[in-house]
Design a protein around this nucleic acid. Structure first.
Lengths: 227, 227
DNA sequence: GATATTTTGTCGGGTAGCCGACTGTTTTCT
DNA sequence: AGAAAACAGTCGGCTACCCGACAAAATATC
């Protein structure tokens, strides 16, 4: 399983599976209603303030949902991997886009018109129920993320992100980062320099080795224990 | 309208009304299924780690939903006023309680057993839809709150809270705080001292006057403009 | 109405993380 | 392949905010 579970919303590995299952059921339905298209890296799927006319489903690739904050600063609320839905919240509430969605990598995106989406939910109470559960899960995740922002230091949040993104093999965990330090800083809520510096310190301390986009945690258990 | 909209989740005044309407529709249904009871100030309605066997509706009073963070520290995710539902997320996802709910003031709470709640949603697609929309709204609110935590200083967050809690009359805004400084610090994510000090500075600067639990913002427009 | 408990006010010291700046390295683009 | 852009590394100064600690005021308790 590749799309382990990167999300601004902290932990989750057990319930990822549950969410994936729920969304898979939805996906089947969506495919009959939507149109697929390829979207290039860095392209926007929707922008803040636009009308919310579609919802989306990641068929392949990686998408971030972010907000502009003060002065060009950005905050990434979560990442959406292959098999996940995004953009539904504003459609349901009938608001304009509050956030923007942008591709991290080249992606294949299925889009479903808002009317079809709502009609579909109205006609398939099971789909509606699945969506409600998925949203409840996301709400709890986001709330847990609030907790980490307030009470955990940057190093902890970064560690958590690496562990989620990484694939464990034996003692080691290998993380192939699709994100630059700057992107990471948006996800964990800090400055770019702090990401670079924290990673650098770990390397100097012999906890981690890395070059290019590949980070390897030497002793995963020890790493987790240190948190 | 008194229960304007205090929530850990930042702003919202326009869409509060919409949410209130949605929840009112739900409330009617709930009343036929649930049992009412009086709960004293500071009493817990549910605690972290408990099984999620009921959902709740605030008939009167004020309830906070919080999480324990590191070392006895607490974080209040949001406040629930008269007419609002809480505790549904964990019931929907079938998880244990992630957070705890505690009364800020003496309150009257309607509780609906999980099974009834889910059965009700299954039988009334309209109710399910209303809940989904309400949850989507809350998700967006919480995400906006994340943004403020990362990018706005404590003073801004405190100001925001006061404005939400307050009742405006002319230039002034009168805020009758049901919360101690410590409780406020949990809501806006900072230390108790910082709340006291910020409020004190505003008073010294002649922006605000207060005694006991009553805070008065002299010139609301100027106050908002300063943010 | 006296006592205990909670809340508020205030102070100083400590620090995590921000911010600007600049350099070198990678990646992208044509 | 070479130029331009994006990214990573590093440094020093700065400050918002935390954390104890303690006294005074307010509130709750009996």
């Amino acid at each position: 399983m590749n799309e382990a579970g990167v999300r601004g919303d902290a932990q989750e590995t057990a319930s990822n599976r549950a969410e994936a299952a729920e969304q898979l059921a939805l996906a089947k339905l969506f495919e009959t209603f939507g149109a697929s298209r390829d979207v290039k890296k860095n392209a926007f799927i929707f922008r803040s303030e636009e009308e919310s006319q579609e919802i989306y489903f990641v068929q392949d690739g990686l998408v971030k949902i972010s907000q502009f904050a003060q002065e060009g600063q950005s905050i990434t609320l979560f990442l959406r991997h292959k098999g996940e839905v995004f953009g539904a919240a504003e459609v349901l509430t009938g608001q304009k886009r509050q956030r923007y969605a942008r591709c991290i990598t080249d992606s294949r995106i299925l889009s479903i018109p808002a009317a079809s989406f709502i009609g579909l939910l109205r006609q398939h109470p099971d789909a509606l129920y699945a969506l409600t559960v998925a949203n409840a899960r996301r709400l709890l995740q986001t709330q847990r993320y609030v907790e980490t922002l307030v009470s955990r230091p940057v190093a902890w949040r970064l560690a958590q992100l690496l562990l989620q993104l990484g694939v464990r093999s034996g003692k080691e965990t290998v993380v192939t980062l699709p994100l630059s330090h700057e992107e990471i800083s948006y996800v964990i809520g800090c400055s770019r320099q702090t990401v670079t510096e924290t990673l650098g310190r770990w390397r100097d301390d012999g906890i981690v080795r890395y070059e290019k986009k590949q980070v390897v945690i030497f002793d995963t258990d020890a790493f987790e224990a240190r948190l």
